[in-house]
């Protein structure tokens, strides 16, 4: 369904199990008169169905990397292939289309629209994808049921707990059946118990075959992932495959 709506100019999707392929990604910003090199040549791959945690101290470039993986930003140089589509150099609107169809975002601050019911929040990306009203609401409802909020579809954010709001955000990320779910500190604004519940939900989704990339600074949260990528000073210092990959 989603694949059919991808512009024809894009390449066919790969079938080798690679979801994300980063080659020599660099990113430089102009900060006043200085140039800041946030990423200095990142290489790495993430396979279909993986649950990845990206860790690194602040200023390490992990936010920049996440923005690039999420198609919110383009690299200065290098190639980024997402689910077989080269997304390294795109216009704003092309990026918006890719985000809409291939990336589901989950933010630390939930980032829900105020005064909008859960059902409408989740239906919103489907509206931008061009689905008709009834199909939108049907899919949104299914996504909310998937995250265990089938009985809260008419609640607005201020009528929901933090954990429930984050579940709405996850349902919204799932709605367009994206290639990856990108989570930025998803438990950062939640208490420990609720955070654990959310991580359990992520694990459940991952068990269903959904690829999840999560940025966190909390080693305990990172434990939930199958693999942890360590980033420091704009470079991947440990891709989490370690010896195992070398031996294979």
């Amino acid at each position: 369904m989603v694949a059919q709506t991808i512009p024809a100019t894009m390449q066919a999707r790969s079938h080798n199990g690679r979801m994300i392929e980063l080659t020599n990604i660099t990113k430089a910003y102009a900060m006043g008169t200085q140039t800041v090199h946030a990423l200095r040549g990142v290489n790495g791959t993430i396979d279909r169905g993986e649950f990845i945690a990206i860790m690194g101290p602040s200023g390490s470039g992990k936010s920049t990397l996440m923005n690039i993986i999420g198609c919110l930003d383009t690299p200065t140089a290098g190639t980024y292939i997402l689910d077989g589509v080269d997304v390294s150099d795109m216009t704003d609107d092309e990026q918006a289309r890719i985000r809409n169809r291939m990336v589901g975002f989950v933010f630390q601050q939930f980032n829900l629209l105020p005064r909008t019911t859960a059902l409408k929040q989740v239906a919103l990306p489907l509206m931008y994808a061009g689905f008709g009203r009834s199909e939108r609401l049907e899919r949104a409802k299914a996504a909310l049921e998937q995250v265990g909020l089938g009985d809260r579809i008419d609640h607005k954010p201020d009528e929901l707990s933090g954990g429930q709001q984050q579940r709405v955000a996850i349902a919204r990320a799932l709605a367009t059946e994206p290639s990856i779910i990108l989570a930025d500190e998803p438990t950062g604004a939640l208490d420990t118990q609720t955070g654990e519940d959310i991580m359990a939900l992520f694990q459940e989704l991952n068990d269903q075959g959904i690829t999840i990339v999560m940025v966190t600074h909390d080693p305990e949260v990172a434990q939930c992932a199958q693999r942890t990528i360590q980033i420091r000073d704009g470079l991947i210092v440990d891709d989490g495959r370690g010896q195992a990959e070398g031996d294979a």
Binding site: G70, L72, D92, D93, A96, R97, R99, N100, R101, F105, N111, L112, L113, P114, L124, P125, Y128, A129, R172, T176
Partner: peptide, 16 residues
């Protein structure tokens, strides 16, 4: 601004 950011992140085009 934040609402616009959210809408764009989940796929709103400039035209939208």
């Amino acid at each position: 601004t934040r609402e616009i950011g959210i809408r764009k992140a989940i796929g709103a085009l400039r035209r939208d």
